[in-house]
Design a protein around this nucleic acid. Structure first.
Lengths: 235, 235
DNA sequence: AAATATCATGACCGATCAGTCATGGTTTTG
DNA sequence: CAAAACCATGACTGATCGGTCATGATATTT
């Protein structure tokens, strides 16, 4: 009940004992989709409310109003539910980052670089807004040790941290940023953006929502030195 | 064994059935302290390795090599261990923030403000360096839902977020910062600092450690507009 | 040294855990 | 419509959970 209105997460059934019957519009197929979604939805709500590690399979099936055996028809264990939940968002994020990588690698001036960042920001915003609850889950569990059912989340966090460094290094090579260590710059920006996002998605009042991107952009631009005044402006 | 060399956490026994015998130098007193420290040490290591929610009391007593009953002699439950672990750090952080609050409230020019921030930075650094593992625990569990044994950590995180806003508002009132919403500015800075710190404490290579504070200071100063050029410089 | 208070210990309890499986109902296939 | 494949169900198992408690050992007090 704590969770607000939301789309059912987009997840798919997993096993195929020997080709499933009535693939397309069949009753079976519809039921499978419905159950998978019910499990994912119940799990996501519980994860957000108590944290992944505190949720048992019994909790999930109780909330989803299905039998325990059915859970194991669709998922091997809790970690596979987590995996299924984040998959679509992770894919979208990867594509956005790949595209930004290319754009930055090709950038030769300030405008191209800023454009690449803006495009990335837009693509990531779209992915986040399409899946706010999954994003909240990621932000909540982001620093989990990689043990147990939270392994997929920890791995995604590591991937994002790493890609952020790569991205910053690329911009750095062009001499478009201040001469700070890209690893530090990247961690700073990721930390700032994610914390802001987490608070916004968790219902903290941060003032007018539409002002946030602008403020954030200004902070980053002034802070790390993307700007027409050029890199290395040492005051 | 995952955890590096470290001080035993400073924690104290809790109950006092009717005044403890031989308070000062007694054998009893020494045993009590030793056991309490053993429990806290074992728990902290496990918490960092697997996450608080994934650690059972049995895990803790097995690692601390004590009987289960002894655990309950010193702690009511897991959440009290968490509470005991973070208490000293929380107290230090509170004092530093209180002092900074006063300093900022009294600041009337740029130098006083920057000095207040520098003093705060130093005090917090000292607290962190004195308790790196507890700090890692806080950063790791910072966004936990406030259910179960992680409640003290979630509350501390909320307190820090709130105090950061208060601090920023005070500086803001003096017109010493850019005209951004203090709630956004505060969340940005907290997010950046904490993420950087988490990565540093978790063993990520961020380049020369002693360069980080300088970079961070520059990012914050340029980003949020603390500086002799004055507030509201709208480019 | 005897009496007393404190304390460590691990067996024990009922609840809950993850995961399995025999049963019976339902959909698809031929 | 009959045979076959699929699948929902919830009882069941053995392990583990948080928490308690009777027992015996140890330190303190008198």
């Amino acid at each position: 009940m704590a969770s607000a209105r939301k789309k059912s997460p987009a997840v798919r059934p997993r096993n195929a004992p020997s080709a499933r019957p009535g693939p397309a519009g069949g009753t079976r197929d519809a039921n499978r989709k419905a159950r998978t979604r019910a499990i994912a939805k119940a799990a996501l709500e519980l994860f957000l409310d108590r944290g992944v590690e505190a949720v048992s399979v019994d909790d999930v099936v109780r909330r989803a109003r299905i039998a325990k055996g059915s859970f194991y028809t669709y998922f091997r264990d809790q970690s596979e539910v987590v995996e299924a939940l984040i998959e679509p968002v992770r894919d979208a994020v990867r594509e956005s980052l790949d595209a930004c990588d290319v754009a930055i690698r090709e950038a030769r001036d300030y405008d191209s670089l800023l454009g690449a960042y803006q495009t990335l920001g837009l693509a990531l915003s779209a992915a986040v807004l399409a899946n706010p609850d999954v994003t909240r889950l990621y932000l909540q569990e982001r620093r989990a040790p990689d043990h147990g059912p939270r392994i997929p989340l920890a791995r995604l966090a590591a991937e994002i941290d790493h890609r952020a460094v790569t991205l910053t290094e690329a911009a750095h090579l062009h001499g478009l940023l201040k001469a700070f260590d890209p690893r530090v710059t990247a961690a700073t920006v990721v930390g700032a953006v994610e914390h802001l996002l987490h608070r916004a998605l968790s219902g903290s009042d941060l003032g007018p929502m539409d002002a946030i991107p602008e403020i954030l952009l200004r902070l980053v631009v002034d802070g790390i030195g993307v700007g027409p005044t050029g890199p290395l402006r040492t005051r």
